[in-house]
Computed example of a mutant assay.
Amino acid sequence: MSLKKINAWLHLWLGLVSGLIVFFVAITGCILVFEDDIKLLTRPYLHAEVPANMPLLPPSVLAAAAEKQMPGLKATNIRYIGPGKTAEVSFRSDSIVYVHPYTAQVTAIADHEDFFHEITEGHTSLWLPPKAGHMVVTYATLIFTVLLITGMVLWWPKKWNRHNIRNAFTILWTGKFKRVNYDLHNVLGFYTIPVTLIIAYSGLFMGLGWVAKSAYWLASGGKSMPTYYEPPSDTTLKATAGVLTIVDQVWEKSIRELSSPFSEAIIIGIPDEKNESIYVYTNTDGPRYQVHYFDQANGALLKGTGTDVTPYSKANGGDQLRRLNYSLHVGSIWGLPSKLIYFLASFVAASLPVTGFYIWWGKKKKKKTPPQKKTQAVTI
């Protein structure tokens, strides 16, 4: 069997095996591309008017306001999203409390397990038990990556003459349905392959350790991915103030000294154990986020390890790639333009198993049709 036939055989059978899974993962990905935008349009409580000459309220004030709405529960972290948006106060619960960051007015209590949560579950695990579902989706993504490569080989024209170039790059909309379907599979698959390869790779980066480690090694110039270590607070120290007071001090320091001047997005954790440190994520509205750890007894900066503890501008290529990966996967790296591109690419990716199945079914049906016998006229 020639390499060409082996390639075609792989493309066919791997597509049949993974097609339905790829369809569901891609179509749910289409929806999730605009998750944040849809939420901002449909949920008025996410918006908060910025009053004149009023500063942001510290975590202790927002936590107190939210805890009144959740009797018996303590806030675990607070997310300041940015100007004109409400802050999110999280609990060990399915509910999130939204609080105006300038007035401490509670604007809504929303269930974390909403429509987009269900879509995310389908995208990452096909609504199966998480461990098994993640494995199915990850290996289907790996197969899809192989399909993109074998499809590129099948698309490649034998000769680069005018006729073949026209067939490879354009859709014959005036042709029969069978021809249009073939062009939709072949031509659109080619045009979207740069984006679909990035989506597939970034998904594999999150799902397969060997992919992440290999990519990190290459991007960092031969370094191994560091292990994550969250330093504990020193329980032998005498606390200088209450935990929430220290949290407020850490928050103020983080905004003043650690956050980017171009980003007000920050997440701060509220420890509930004596040896638990206070964590702060700064610049969380993009890939330049960074995590910091502080002792809850006195607010001293602690040293942790991982890919996100170094300022982005000073991080090695592997650390930067790790922090870019999520933005690369969801298409938020360039804002609305890249989201539109990712939406279209994901939609095409969802269509490929459908158009590919129709191509296979048409060939199979054609083979089963027996050739018609020619009848000869009989003269008397």
Results as ranks from 00 to 15, higher is better:
P311E: 03
V153Y: 11
S327Y: 15
Q320R: 15
G222D: 05
I165F: 11
G72I: 10
G222F: 04
D183C: 12
M1L: 07
L208W: 04
V250W: 05
L352V: 04
N186G: 06
S346V: 08
P194V: 13
F343V: 07
K365Q: 09
Y98N: 14
H329R: 05
F24H: 05
K131N: 12
L126G: 04
P353E: 00
P194C: 14
T76R: 15
I199K: 13
L154T: 08
P71N: 03
W360T: 07
T305K: 08
F357A: 01
D295R: 05
P231Q: 07
V33G: 02
N77D: 10
M206K: 09
K364M: 12
R79W: 14
M206F: 15
T227A: 14
L328T: 05
K374D: 14
R92G: 14
G15Q: 05
I255H: 15
D111S: 04
V61R: 15
E67A: 09
E252K: 11
N161G: 11
P51C: 07
V291D: 01
S351Y: 02
L56K: 06
D183E: 01
G356N: 06
G15K: 11
I27F: 10
H100P: 02
S351F: 00
K314L: 09
Y326Q: 00
E113W: 08
L324V: 06
I96P: 08
W361A: 04
P370S: 05
K176S: 14
L172R: 15
F294W: 10
G15L: 06
G304H: 08
W160R: 14
S327E: 13
W360L: 03
V243Q: 06
I31Q: 03
A315D: 00
W127P: 01
T124N: 12
L301E: 10
S18F: 09
L148M: 07
T28I: 08
R323A: 07
V247P: 13
V243C: 04
I380Q: 14
V33Q: 09
P51E: 12
S338T: 09
I119W: 09
S2N: 11
I199G: 11
V211C: 00
L56C: 02
K4V: 03
T174C: 11
A241Y: 06
A64M: 10
W334R: 13
